[in-house]
Design a protein around this nucleic acid. Structure first.
Length: 111
DNA sequence: GACTTGACTAGAC
DNA sequence: AGTCTAGCCAAGT
């Protein structure tokens, strides 16, 4: 299992209406210093992957070569109910955490 | 093998 | 809050 494949598998598990950061995913995969690699793994993501649920540590959509995909990302997140505040996702509310996973198991409607 | 290139981050002003 | 810097590391030249 390559790091990239592991990243994609993990990203697929982020539920609707939740976001994770690059560094967070890297840490969950046991490689806390490989945040940049997470972004790299997402470069070639296809349409099936919920790549839009990954933002940077500040809750901002990371800049990339084409600005169009940044707009797409924000629109998709907002369609899932993720709220922004001054250009940042409100991470304290929408971050995908162990606590969020627990709540989801108990009360799925709280997703 | 030596650079360079990033969808990164934490820390320091 | 904005800007810089150093450290990061897999991939591509």
């Amino acid at each position: 299992m390559t790091f990239q494949a592991a990243v994609l598998d993990l990203v697929r598990r982020i539920p609707r209406g939740r976001v994770a950061t690059y560094g967070q995913l890297a840490t969950l995969l046991g490689r806390p210093r490989s945040a940049r690699m997470v972004g790299q793994a997402l470069r070639g993501a296809d349409g099936a992957l919920p790549w839009h649920r990954v933002v940077n540590a500040q809750g901002r959509i990371s800049p990339r070569s084409r600005a169009a995909s940044m707009l797409t990302q924000r629109i998709r997140l907002e369609q899932e109910g993720v709220l922004f505040r001054r250009g940042r996702v409100i991470l304290t509310r929408f971050r995908w955490t162990a606590a969020a996973r627990q709540r989801a198991r108990f009360k799925p409607e709280l997703l």
